[in-house]
Design a protein around this nucleic acid. Structure first.
Lengths: 221, 221
DNA sequence: ATCAAGTCTGTAACTTGTTCTAGATTACCG
DNA sequence: CGGTAATCTAGAACAAGTTACAGACTTGAT
């Protein structure tokens, strides 16, 4: 059995994900595989049962890893679920990129994109529950990871807007859209708002985009 | 020692709070006092230490109540903290009512009011942490209570707008403002956004109000 | 091939939210 | 008053997140 070499720049990287996680120590293949098994188990358990069903002992068992190891990879349940969200978001961004939104205005395109994402979440409401609850419950110790999720979300929205160099005002609008997106998801997940309400809220907040760039929003795609 | 009579309509109610909690079984004076002690202890513990510092055993001890009794009054830590928030919100609404906002437009008045509330929260950031985290983490079993908080918040915002009969569009805008408010608080509490950022986000989202009623927003106070 | 350092495993212990129980106390009714 | 149902108390017990640790396995370098 040959020793597991670190995966460095000289070896062919099979996973098309050069960005996003500049891990301080590069992982061996087995470690990368463990990480992957853990995230998979996490998503699977979350898909049934939501937040509560993701139990650290079960994740460890499902991914065939000792509990201590699980905690070495993800220092808390919240870290694990936020990482799971990062993972899912990458998928999502890829999927969304394939079919760019068709709306005329930037506001329409953003709303369209978010509604598409929303429909995807509706297919796995328990998973959405686990991820979003973790995200909003995260305390300061998870800030870097939550920030990354936020940046990824921002990237998705800016993509939909078709902007290279957003103005500060536009960035403010995007931040507000993200606030609304997260909070609206929460109200939907906890049964306090209908799908239709979420749609309305998204469309309402997206109007802010037109407000920030009244005349020059149409140069995209 | 005379038996504690239920506080019913025939006895003078000393607390100026006839609305807000139509408790199915009316409470005796001692029960009302217990409830108050519990909420007080909860707020006190939250004020240092935040969410994690509110430990059910400590709340029980601080309020001189058995653990089982605490759970009879508030069926979970989340219920307790959401109730604490309701309590604080009532205070806040009263305080805010005394000095109505002075802005020209409805958007300005709402932003002014929210910033005033924000400054109040800044004085007790740990308490804010406990309440807001509980609010967004609450699951379906707490929906009625969370809804009440939401309604109270809506009332505050509509107050600031100076509206009696808001249009559906305006209500949508208010919902989006609340979303932004909660989510912006979270990002601030977890150290991912500065106070200045929160201010900008609030002002940004408040622009939606002008958007929903371009011509007739000025008839208040 | 072999050694030192780092990693993984299995397991027990600890913490805090939550539930349960038996026995006192209190509230309400006749 | 006296009885009964509801409530309260103290404390044990349970559940799931988290930590600790001893021993086995990997890794990287010689």
């Amino acid at each position: 059995m040959p020793a597991e070499a670190k995966v460095d720049a000289s070896s062919a990287r099979q996973e098309p994900r050069p960005e996003s996680r500049p891990d301080s120590p590069p992982l061996t293949q087995r470690q990368e595989a463990r990480r992957r098994r853990i995230l998979h188990a996490s998503a699977q358990l979350a898909s049934r049962g939501g937040f509560d069903a993701v139990q650290m002992r079960e994740v460890a068992e499902s991914s065939q890893v000792a509990l201590g190891t699980l905690y070495r990879y993800f220092p808390s349940k919240i870290h694990l679920l936020v990482a799971t969200m990062q993972d899912q978001l990458e998928h999502m961004h890829g999927t969304l990129r394939k079919k760019p939104p068709t709306g005329e205005t930037a506001a329409e395109r953003v709303a369209e994109t978010l509604m598409r994402a929303f429909r995807a979440l509706q297919r796995e409401p328990h998973l959405a529950d686990a991820m979003v609850r973790a995200l909003t419950f995260a305390d300061r110790s998870v800030s870097p990871e939550v920030d990354q999720v936020s940046h990824q979300t921002t990237a998705i929205i800016l993509d939909a807007m078709g902007l290279e160099r957003p103005t500060p005002e536009q960035l403010s609008a995007v931040r507000v859209i993200e606030h609304t997106w997260h909070s609206a998801l929460i109200t939907w997940l906890s049964g306090r708002a209908s799908i239709a309400q979420v749609k309305i809220d998204i469309e309402t907040v997206c109007r802010l985009i037109d407000l920030t760039a009244p005349g020059d929003a149409r140069d995209a795609t």
